[in-house]
Design a protein around this nucleic acid. Sequence first.
DNA 1: CAGGGTATCTGACTAAAGTCAGAGAAAATC
DNA 2: GATTTTCTCTGACTTTAGTCAGATACCCTG
Lengths: 308, 308
Amino acid sequence: MPSTASPTRSDAPADPESIARLRRFNRAVTTATGALDASFLGRGRPLGVARMLHALGAEGREVGAARAHLALDSGLASRLLRTLEAEGLVETGRHPDDGRRRIARPTAKGRAEQREYDRLSDDHAAATLAGFGRAAPELLAAMDRIACALGRERIALRVADPEAADARACLAAYYAELDRRFAAGFRVEDSGDPEADKLRPPRGAFLLAEFDGAAIACGGLTPLPDADMKTGEIKRLWIAPAARGLGLSLRMMEALEARARGYGMARLRLDTNGALTEASALYRRLGWVETGRYNDNPYAELFFEKRL
Amino acid sequence: MPSTASPTRSDAPADPESIARLRRFNRAVTTATGALDASFLGRGRPLGVARMLHALGAEGREVGAARAHLALDSGLASRLLRTLEAEGLVETGRHPDDGRRRIARPTAKGRAEQREYDRLSDDHAAATLAGFGRAAPELLAAMDRIACALGRERIALRVADPEAADARACLAAYYAELDRRFAAGFRVEDSGDPEADKLRPPRGAFLLAEFDGAAIACGGLTPLPDADMKTGEIKRLWIAPAARGLGLSLRMMEALEARARGYGMARLRLDTNGALTEASALYRRLGWVETGRYNDNPYAELFFEKRL
DNA sequence: CAGGGTATCTGACTAAAGTCAGAGAAAATC
DNA sequence: GATTTTCTCTGACTTTAGTCAGATACCCTG
């Protein structure tokens, strides 16, 4: 992390959300460059030992998993754990199901030390942010963009509950963008908002794309009540600005279509607004064809259908 | 650098200018994070030795200067040079004026090796760019932004010749932006373009701000032909979008004012256009007061003056 | 030209990171 | 139940980076 970059004041006020974003950027760049995270220094402990302590997390981890994560030789990893044990920061025990594998867990003292490292990172991030001054929001947006691009192989899709906190945050960002982009604004209540239940199995789904712990895209699948019960609808497809242009919308649509096929659906529909030009272009590219209005959503201007 | 980031194809086509921008970003982040540049690996040579070879440049360098640049102990630096000598990559000779100092110069073989390291860096950069696909231009802009912010302590102002290549590039970018922002466009020929001679000493100046070899801002000072020959004019003040919000315009204005004072000038004038809202705000903040039209520049709508 | 200061170098040392060959115990396979 | 495989560990080793105390040669000043 931009650690040499003038940590002017450690008491710099910065909101946790900005700090998290900056640290996410630092991790992305750190991973991409094979760099060392400078916050791992400065507590009188060699880098390797500090990295191992960090890799264990608060809950502890299988020795082999930590070793693979840090790409270490088994001998070296073992020695680092012995060092941490000697300091009283870590305890190792046997795996409940497999006596060959071992689990290394931080002790209470070890967890306190992990929190100290976290605090160091936060301080560095806060100082960097303070140095950015009024340009900070815009720089953070640029950092989000680059972090997503550098780490795009690590963006993972997963099924989420549409009422979970991260899902709601994603949807809120989506609605806010619609409100900005529609000339007349946007209110969810007027848009035929699918109840959360329809976005859950067995006939619906809500997918989230996550990058380093942050939700950066979402997409929903709901059943439509037609005669043969074989029609689905794509809802709430949104990619965070930071993650656009990386092929994520394609991945999300393919995942939703695959899920619809798995549900035995024969066709999918979706509606969209003319203001969302990139969305319509995407649907056409993916083989969707324009069709007639199939609902009374006042915000919908264009209707698409795709046979599976 | 983003070296782990899928160097998919080494034959990826990417223009040298984009590669230079990406590498500038990498250097900025590398410096800020204390990271190692991964391109220094992979030629069977320890990092320290490779960094020393790189630090010498094609022309060679004083041992002390290279040592200071890499922040190395004198003993370690000396040993790295011996290693390079043993490989036949470097020759050291005595300084022409001072027999204590020594100059280390790469041999022909050493320069070839430097080029190989450069090629490795370029390949990494090109592969990363290729992976970005159509989002590349926008990502590069975000990278420029972050590189400037992280490295803002290293932005240096210098007097430049207004007809040198980097100055002309800076001015061209400025004119292009005016053309975009003015409703009726902009043509230099119509704007009372100061001849280059007026932007040179003894009564004028053209300042460039440089970051890691790239010109990112400029500003000119010319004499105005009033009775007591004590009036100057600020011309062509421009900050590249990537460098805005970092206080650079303030630095540039202060440098130009200091220079005007050095020339014995008593007052400064400038004109600007209402479309450049941030410029007018800056001038007011710096103590300029609005005054009447003093030229026939058709693009000028606002006129400011400041007593020195 | 003596003496102090400076630039570089060598030798002796340490810390950190990493490699490699087995040893030992547990699990999986035949 | 014997054999092979898997996981972790220990001991012995190397490489890289870095520190520190002089030694050496040169420059500058008085």
